[in-house]
Lab assay of single mutants.
Amino acid sequence: SLEELLKLARHALRHGEEIHVLDRVITDEHEIKRLIEELERLI
């Protein structure tokens, strides 16, 4: 769900981890922040 993805993204950002989204691995902090902003808009 989007909520789950948002939780994962926030966790990854906090802990400096990578996040796997739709067969992509996002490691860049700015990309993760952008993902979080997009998800928050959708929810």
Results as ranks from 00 to 15, higher is better:
33 K>L: 14
17 E>H: 14
31 E>K: 06
6 L>E: 01
31 E>T: 08
16 G>Y: 05
33 K>I: 14
30 H>T: 12
26 I>Q: 01
25 V>W: 09
16 G>M: 07
27 T>G: 09
13 L>D: 04
9 A>G: 02
37 E>A: 14
29 E>R: 14
7 K>L: 11
38 E>P: 00
18 E>V: 13
9 A>P: 00
3 E>G: 05
7 K>Y: 06
18 E>K: 11
28 D>E: 12
14 R>W: 12
32 I>R: 01
35 L>Y: 11
43 I>Y: 05
4 E>I: 11
8 L>T: 09
43 I>W: 03
13 L>C: 03
33 K>S: 09
4 E>Q: 11
9 A>H: 01
43 I>T: 04
26 I>H: 04
32 I>Y: 02
20 H>Q: 12
39 L>H: 00
18 E>Q: 11
20 H>D: 05
3 E>R: 06
30 H>K: 13
41 R>V: 08
17 E>G: 15
20 H>P: 04
22 L>D: 12
42 L>K: 11
15 H>C: 05
42 L>M: 12
7 K>H: 08
23 D>Y: 00
28 D>Q: 10
36 I>K: 01
20 H>A: 08
35 L>A: 03
1 S>C: 08
3 E>S: 05
11 H>Q: 11
11 H>P: 00
10 R>I: 15
13 L>W: 03
36 I>L: 03
5 L>W: 09
24 R>G: 06
41 R>S: 08
8 L>D: 10
36 I>M: 04
9 A>Q: 01
5 L>Q: 05
11 H>G: 08
27 T>N: 11
38 E>N: 12
14 R>K: 15
34 R>Y: 09
17 E>Q: 12
10 R>E: 15
9 A>D: 00
28 D>A: 11
12 A>R: 03
22 L>Q: 13
18 E>G: 14
17 E>V: 13
14 R>Q: 15
28 D>C: 05
38 E>G: 07
14 R>N: 15
24 R>L: 10
22 L>N: 15
29 E>N: 10
27 T>Q: 10
32 I>F: 04
10 R>G: 03
8 L>P: 00
19 I>F: 11
14 R>P: 02
11 H>C: 06
20 H>N: 09
37 E>G: 10
34 R>H: 12
39 L>G: 00
40 E>P: 00
33 K>G: 07
10 R>Y: 14
38 E>Y: 15
3 E>K: 07
37 E>I: 14
24 R>Q: 09
31 E>W: 05
37 E>F: 13
9 A>F: 09
26 I>A: 04
24 R>Y: 08
43 I>R: 02
30 H>W: 14
34 R>P: 01
2 L>H: 05
25 V>R: 04
39 L>K: 00
12 A>Q: 04
33 K>W: 08
15 H>G: 06
4 E>H: 10
32 I>E: 00
23 D>R: 02
12 A>F: 02
41 R>F: 09
42 L>Q: 10
27 T>R: 13
1 S>P: 09
13 L>K: 05
30 H>I: 12
38 E>L: 14
16 G>T: 04
6 L>K: 01
36 I>D: 00
11 H>W: 05
2 L>N: 04
5 L>P: 00
6 L>C: 02
30 H>E: 14
33 K>F: 08
25 V>I: 14
39 L>C: 02
16 G>K: 13
19 I>G: 01
1 S>D: 13
28 D>M: 09
30 H>R: 13
41 R>A: 10
36 I>V: 07
14 R>T: 15
15 H>D: 08
22 L>H: 13
1 S>Q: 11
17 E>T: 13
39 L>Q: 00
6 L>P: 00
17 E>I: 14
2 L>T: 04
5 L>E: 02
9 A>Y: 11
25 V>E: 04
4 E>V: 10
14 R>F: 14
27 T>E: 07
21 V>E: 03
32 I>A: 02
27 T>P: 02
11 H>N: 11
11 H>R: 09
6 L>W: 01
25 V>H: 08
16 G>N: 10
19 I>E: 00
19 I>C: 02
14 R>D: 15
6 L>D: 00
18 E>P: 15
23 D>P: 03
5 L>D: 01
39 L>I: 11
21 V>S: 05
23 D>Q: 06
25 V>Q: 06
21 V>D: 03
40 E>D: 05
9 A>L: 15
39 L>E: 00
10 R>C: 05
27 T>I: 10
31 E>V: 08
43 I>E: 01
17 E>W: 07
1 S>N: 13
31 E>G: 08
19 I>P: 01
21 V>L: 15
23 D>K: 02
30 H>F: 12
42 L>D: 03
28 D>N: 11
21 V>H: 09
1 S>A: 11
7 K>E: 11
15 H>T: 15
7 K>S: 09
41 R>T: 09
34 R>D: 11
22 L>T: 07
35 L>P: 00
40 E>S: 05
14 R>G: 11
26 I>M: 08
38 E>M: 15
32 I>K: 08
12 A>C: 03
18 E>Y: 07
32 I>G: 01
7 K>D: 09
15 H>P: 01
16 G>P: 03
26 I>S: 02
6 L>Y: 02
6 L>R: 02
3 E>H: 07
3 E>T: 07
8 L>E: 11
10 R>W: 10
29 E>V: 14
29 E>Y: 14
16 G>Q: 08
12 A>V: 03
20 H>Y: 07
22 L>K: 15
5 L>S: 02
27 T>D: 07
35 L>F: 12
30 H>C: 07
19 I>Y: 05
12 A>W: 02
35 L>G: 00
21 V>C: 05
33 K>P: 01
7 K>V: 09
12 A>T: 00
37 E>P: 01
31 E>S: 09
13 L>Q: 08
37 E>Q: 13
31 E>P: 02
30 H>Y: 13
11 H>T: 08
30 H>V: 13
28 D>H: 09
37 E>C: 02
26 I>K: 01
39 L>T: 03
25 V>P: 04
18 E>I: 11
15 H>Y: 15
11 H>S: 08
21 V>I: 14
37 E>H: 13
9 A>N: 00
43 I>G: 02
